[in-house]
């Protein structure tokens, strides 16, 4: 039975406190009214630059952060309200892989303990069977078994990330959410991790949500891509179509910038997400901006399976 996450109008705001009395000085609009449908049978990429809210969204998706409004629901129930057995089941089905493996592993836990932890928490194995499961997981992520007793600081970046992936796979999840898994790794190591994730998707039918700022990496792995800007999803389409014929001006900018085309006219700076522009958030940098853009464009399905939030496109 597949898992499906329904993201409905999810908004996450953070309060900025400043001054001696820690008064409310502003609100960070990290994620604003995001709608997504995540099917655990496919691979979805979420792309955006810093400040677009993708990491925040990742944490909201697995229930580690409570949305300010809207909800992420799985099987009809809001994820952040799950308790007890339902919550444990959800933890088993949906797992998160973090960006910086140096930080996402307990510095005092050896590899075998870290990988065994989810099995212990959910009482899925013990004793000899536990050892065997751990070994099998390490093999799955191509980690030599002799690294079993190592501590994180004795491992390379790539090895640490593999441990993180092994740990996430322990409960045989149906959906893996990867938050910038290769951003802090060397290019060659990163490409191996991408290959591993692809294999896992193909052979074990694990759904993937791949969150990254690296459009090329996302495009190589995912069938669909959602582009985020300043907390909003501005375009969502099958990868081939998005890359060949982008609709949203920001997607276009991102595509051309990703090839480091130095002839690109990339004007202006990203506005802060404490004071986002009214209406369409991209209008301060958009080459085709028009008066109508003072109004917020909704994300509409203008062709089957292609959505865009723009008044003037397609």
């Amino acid at each position: 039975m597949s898992v499906r996450l329904d993201v409905q109008r999810v908004t996450k705001h953070f309060l900025v406190r400043a001054g001696f009395f820690q008064r409310r000085a502003g609100v960070v609009h990290a994620v604003d009214e995001v709608n997504l449908r995540i099917d655990a049978t496919g691979t979805l990429g979420i792309v955006g630059e810093s400040g677009c809210g993708k990491s925040t969204l990742a944490r909201v998706l697995v229930g580690l952060l409570e949305p300010t409004s809207g909800q992420v629901s799985a099987g009809g129930q809001a994820v952040h309200t799950l308790r007890g057995a339902a919550r444990r089941q959800f933890c088993r089905d949906v797992q998160l892989i973090f960006q910086d493996p140096a930080n996402s592993l307990n510095p005092r836990m050896r590899v075998e303990t870290a990988v065994a932890e989810p099995l212990i928490i959910h009482r899925l194995a013990s004793g000899q069977a536990l050892q065997r499961r751990v070994d099998a997981l390490l093999e799955q992520v191509r980690l030599p078994l002799m690294l079993r007793r190592r501590l994180p600081r004795e491992l390379s970046g790539g090895e640490r990330q593999r441990v993180g992936i092994a740990r996430a796979l322990a409960t045989e999840p149906k959906l893996l959410i990867c938050d910038e898994p290769i951003a802090s790794l060397d290019v060659s190591v990163g490409s191996q991790i991408l290959k591993l994730l692809n294999e896992l998707h193909q052979s074990r039918h694990v759904g993937l949500v791949f969150i990254s700022h690296d459009l090329a990496a996302v495009a190589s792995l995912c069938q669909r891509i959602a582009v985020m800007y300043l907390g909003r999803v501005v375009e969502e389409a099958p990868t081939a179509q998005l890359v060949a014929h982008p609709w949203h001006p920001y997607t276009e900018l991102l595509l051309r910038a990703s090839t480091l085309d130095l002839n690109l006219r990339a004007s202006g700076e990203r506005p802060s997400n404490i004071h986002p522009p009214s209406g369409c958030r991209f209008r301060t940098r958009c080459p085709i901006v028009a008066p109508v853009c003072q109004e917020d464009p909704p994300l509409l399905e203008k062709q089957p399976a292609r959505l865009v939030a723009c008044h003037k496109r397609p």
């Binding site: 691979t43 290019v187 060659s188 990163g190 490409s191 692809n198 193909q202 690296d214 459009l215 090329a216 990496a217 495009a219 190589s220 792995l221 995912c222 069938q223 990868t239 081939a240 890359v243 595509l255 990703s258 090839t259």
Partner: peptide
């Protein structure tokens, strides 16, 4: 050659 091979450009995509 190895470094260049790992490069991902938007023209290469291996998604199914």
């Amino acid at each position: 050659q190895q470094l260049l091979a790992c490069r991902l450009t938007l023209s290469q995509r291996s998604s199914s």
